[in-house]
Design a protein around this nucleic acid. Structure first.
Length: 914
RNA sequence: GGACGCUUAGCUCAGUUGGUUCAGAGCGCCGCCCUUACAAGGCGGAGGUCGUAGGUUCGACCCCUACAGCGUCCACCA
């Protein structure tokens, strides 16, 4: 147990570093983050969106993890068995790239090492650097259950991947097919969409005449930017609604240079208004043409080799030519035959390899796919029917749209780092049968071919898309499908489904949607239920904001416009960074962020710190109250009852905002309560008793009550600012080693203590004080100058009750004498004001410049008259009186008379000065 | 091109059963205070026809339409 209760004298300025290190170590060492199935409690679970092992903490993580930690900590303090499961993602491409780049510095490629050696290198790298981000999350204060930390390439998670692959294959949902990938003709490898850099380029668009078969001298004219791919043309397409060409559909055209007939088909994909409205379809060399080809069952003719040179499917003249050389020759040949209608300038964006800048070639190759339609349907339903709720809700539309237009998922990747596809092929020997050509899909490495018995097997070279492991994350973290063998069966039952997913909207398709599908598909095998509500991976999804810089640009590494989170934590403190980002995070809106904004959080931390210092200093002076003070309402004065009322309504508001995931509102509510209600008013008010002539036991009771409220407020704040609240919480009472604020309960809002009358009465006192301060300010009366206050109260307001609060007035407005006068009387020379209909005078006697006061009153009278005129106009408006509801009219009339009275009183004061 | 979001003080943002004492907060600015928790603080003040133009309504920051500007996602660029 760190030395917390030993020293009660706190530094004047809160310094975060030491406190943070101390308490985080303490929490972790004592297992306070750890959760275990507990039948007496309800589970609350979050799985972390596993950061890439190549990643370092950026502002998006700060936001995302501050949110998750706040949610988990709130639930933990509300009596849930709260579990936040952390881990990392192996990030196939990113990680492989990092290691390859390192190799490149040694002048080597992965091919020099070979697959096994290369993978060893990656694992080494992972061991050395892959945990960086996990350590950084600790600095933020994340209360993750580190005993449960997982990695998507852990053996158990890899098992889950193979299991799912096999099951889907057996269900007929995984198949092998052709697909267009981004191919780099220089590196001879497929690269992912993310690795393609697109840029605008000035090029040409060629209009080529394809002779129509059967009608001489008539042509189909197609527009293309890539004439060299024409040898792979499989059709010409027009829009089915395009009347110009309706008569051609079903006919054929002659492919020039190749001398081959191709059909003319109709497809919605064609934009009738672009070009001629006729498109050549080249399924093997264009992604869109590929899909058109699928729909119309067209042949896929790949006319390039791996280096994008024309292959044997092209006329002999072109074979072996580079794609660009072939383009020139083909255009020249077409021109010679009079088959070029025209050539226009055309700007289009082309993709280049991020590594070698070679223009990417859409390339047809063999890939593995998951059929998505059957998986998507139930996943769409659970979001539409509210079994899973999105915050903000509008993302459900985006989700729906994607799910309804879903395409099959290409899951194979031409990489080495990742889960190798669990498929083997029989290389065969003399005994091979026809069946031997089938892929052998297996959970474990097969020893021999099941058909011919040959041991000569070769595993598929490719690995699986990284998302193929992450979509299982909510249950693979519990060692599914081997949970029984690993003793995790109870965990899976208890913690699944998870409750809240906190993630970025840009991965709604990659990750969120697929997790829903996986949960619904595989859930029944471990939940034992077909109820979607039991199988969904999470109940709520919170989509985070985008963090932008002060110019509105998205914060990113490449722009270099993001502050370094660890520097922020060092400079402002983790609590301040957390508070600031959560205070700024509106649900569904971006965050405009800059380092200086953390002053908000830092100043707040310091404010709380000093409030704690104040309480502790006073407790040390008065000594501990003999027994723990109880809120016996009879013995509380106005300030006590008021702060209690405010505390409970604050708690109520926070709980409501939390339910709606309005974390910025939560932050603002606790901030306003702490700073304004507690510090500005309550603490200042109790000073009048602490520094007065009260007996010691009264002072003790006052401090004790103040500490109780402080304790409650610390608990409300702890999930957002965990460190400073723990430090103070440990100081304000004697705690045992196993006590921690993070496992203390948040007090439930007691609505009986929310007292409207008390708040009204306090409002009156506060308004009187503010009014006096206002006069002081405007009249330039020094704050130190003592004044007397004369009040003329209406019968409803009891003078002797106000007299009770004289201490407050003295303390907060430097009123040294309070007296009352009856109706009709009036101090001779005084500044005056009306507060809630009651008249207030400050006799001036050399304090006030008469003309100043007159001008001040005049200004106020004019302002009130302005409002009054508005009310009168409204009440004189016939249609208002006729159509507005009675209550509204009554209210207006009431306001009218109040204003008239107040103005009259001020007017009299004004005249008295003249 | 499609979908969605945003526009309130110099800056960053609050503001739902539509009702002139709700036009507000923080930062910044101006003035006064180093008052025994806190100058990373306290008190007071100035500052906005709530993007533009219409419409609905007795009444619009709030509801509807159009437009402008900014932004996000998706699609497309043959």
């Amino acid at each position: 147990m760190p030395e917390a209760t030993e020293h009660n004298s706190l530094e004047k300025v809160y310094s975060s570093a030491e406190v943070e290190a101390k308490w985080y170590a303490h929490w972790e060492k004592n297992g306070f983050f750890h959760a275990t199935p507990n039948p007496d409690k309800q589970a609350y679970t979050i799985v972390i969106p596993p950061p890439n092992i190549t990643g370092v903490l950026h502002m998006g993580h700060i936001l995302n993890n501050s949110l998750q930690d706040a949610f988990v900590r709130y639930k933990r303090m509300m009596g849930y068995e709260a579990c936040w499961i952390p881990g990392t993602d192996h990030a196939g491409i990113a990680t492989q790239n990092v290691v390859e780049r390192a190799l490149m510095k040694e002048g080597k490629t992965r091919h020099d090492l070979g697959r096994d050696k290369f993978l060893e290198k990656v694992w080494e790298w992972r061991k050395q650097y892959g945990g960086v981000i996990i350590q950084q999350l600790r600095k933020l204060g994340s209360s993750c259950d580190w005993e449960r930390e997982k990695f998507t390439m852990d053996e158990t998670l890899s098992e889950a991947v193979r299991e799912v692959f096999v099951r889907l294959y057996e269900d007929g949902l995984i198949y092998r097919g052709k697909y267009i990938v981004n191919w780099c003709p220089k590196d001879h490898t497929a690269i992912s969409d993310d690795e393609v850099n697109y840029s605008e380029q000035q090029g040409k668009i060629y209009y080529i005449k394809y002779p129509l078969v059967g009608t001489p001298n008539e042509y189909a004219i197609v527009a293309t930017t890539r004439p060299e791919t024409m040898f792979g043309d499989a059709a010409i397409a027009v829009n089915p609604k395009d009347e110009r060409y309706a008569h051609l559909v079903g006919k054929a055209a002659m492919l020039p240079l190749a001398g081959r007939e191709i059909p003319i088909v109709a497809d919605d994909y064609v934009d009738a208004s672009f070009g001629t409205g006729m498109v050549k379809i080249t399924p093997a060399h264009d992604p869109n043409d590929f899909w058109v080809g699928q729909r119309h069952n067209l042949p896929q003719l790949n006319v390039f080799d791996v280096s994008a040179k024309l292959n044997e499917l092209t006329p002999e003249k072109y074979r072996g030519m580079d794609r660009y050389a072939a383009r020139k020759v083909a255009v020249a040949d077409l021109e010679a035959q009079g088959l070029i209608a025209k050539i226009d300038d055309h700007t289009n964006s082309i993709g280049r390899c991020y590594r070698c800048d070679t223009v990417i070639e859409p390339y047809l190759s063999d890939q593995w796919f998951v059929k998505m339609k059957p998986l998507a349907e139930p996943a769409l339903k659970v979001v539409e029917d509210g079994t899973i709720k999105f915050y903000p809700e509008r993302w459900t539309k985006v989700y729906q749209h994607w799910m309804l237009n879903i395409r099959d998922w290409c899951i194979s990747r031409q990489l080495w780092w990742g889960h190798r596809i669990p498929v083997w092929y029989c290389i065969g020997d003399d005994h091979c049968t026809l069946d031997c050509k089938k892929p052998i899909v297996s959970r474990t490495t097969p020893e021999k071919c099941p058909y011919c018995g040959s041991a000569n097997l070769r595993q598929d070279e490719d690995v699986l898309d990284t998302w193929f492991s992450s979509w299982l994350w909510p249950f693979s973290v519990h060692d599914w499908p081997q949970e029984g063998n690993h003793g995790k069966a109870a965990d899976l039952r208890y913690f699944y489904p998870t409750d809240t997913l906190v993630t970025a909207p840009e991965i709604i398709f990659f990750w969120v949607a697929r997790m829903v599908m996986a949960g619904l598909k595989f859930g029944p095998s471990f939940t034992g239920s077909n109820d979607p509500a039991k199988n969904i991976p999470f109940k709520e999804v919170y989509f985070t904001s985008i963090v932008r810089d002060d110019k509105g640009r998205k914060m990113s590494k490449s722009l270099g416009n993001s502050p370094e989170p660890l520097d922020l934590i060092a400079a402002y403190g983790a609590d301040a960074v957390r508070f600031t980002i959560l205070y700024l995070a509106p649900l569904g809106q971006d965050i405009i962020y800059s380092s200086e904004k953390n002053e908000l959080g830092r100043n707040f931390a310091n404010k709380i710190w000093n409030a704690g210092r104040f309480l502790l200093m006073n407790r040390d002076q008065t000594g501990e109250a003999p027994k723990k003070s109880e809120f016996n309402l009879d013995h509380l004065d106005l300030a006590d009852r008021w702060i209690l009322s405010r505390f409970h309504s604050t708690t109520q508001e926070i709980m409501a905002s939390l339910k709606d995931f309005e974390i910025n509102k939560v932050s603002r509510t606790i901030y306003d309560f702490f700073w304004h209600d507690y510090c500005d008013w309550y603490v200042e008010m109790i000073k009048s008793r602490l520094y007065g002539n009260e007996p010691l036991e009264v002072k003790q009771a006052v401090v004790s009550r103040a500490l109780d409220i402080f304790d409650g407020a610390l608990r409300l704040l702890h999930p957002i600012m965990p460190f400073i609240t723990e430090e103070l919480w440990q100081h304000i009472r004697t705690r045992t080693a196993d006590q921690t604020i993070m496992r203390a309960q948040i007090f439930e809002a007691d609505t009986r203590l929310i007292d409207k009358q008390v708040e009204d009465e306090m409002a009156f006192v506060q308004n009187v004080i503010e009014s006096i301060r206002n006069i002081r300010g405007e009249m330039n009366i020094a704050p130190s100058k003592e004044i007397s206050l004369v009040m003329k109260l209406s019968p409803a307001r009891h003078a002797n009750r106000l007299k009770q609060y004289e201490g407050y007035l003295q303390r907060l407005a430097r009123v040294t004498s309070l007296s009352f006068i009856s109706n009709g009387a009036r101090p001779k020379l005084a500044a005056s004001a009306v507060v809630q209909g009651e008249e207030l005078f400050i006799p001036l006697e050399g304090l006030i410049d008469l003309e100043f006061e007159k001008a001040r009153l005049k200004k106020e009278i004019d302002r009130l008259n302005g409002v009054l005129n508005g009310i009168r106009a409204k009440l004189n408006n016939e249609s208002f009186v006729a159509k507005a509801p009675k209550e509204v009219i009554e209210k207006e009339k009431e306001k009218q008379s109040i204003f008239e009275m107040n103005i009259e009183k001020l007017q009299k004061s004004y005249e008295a000065l003249s």
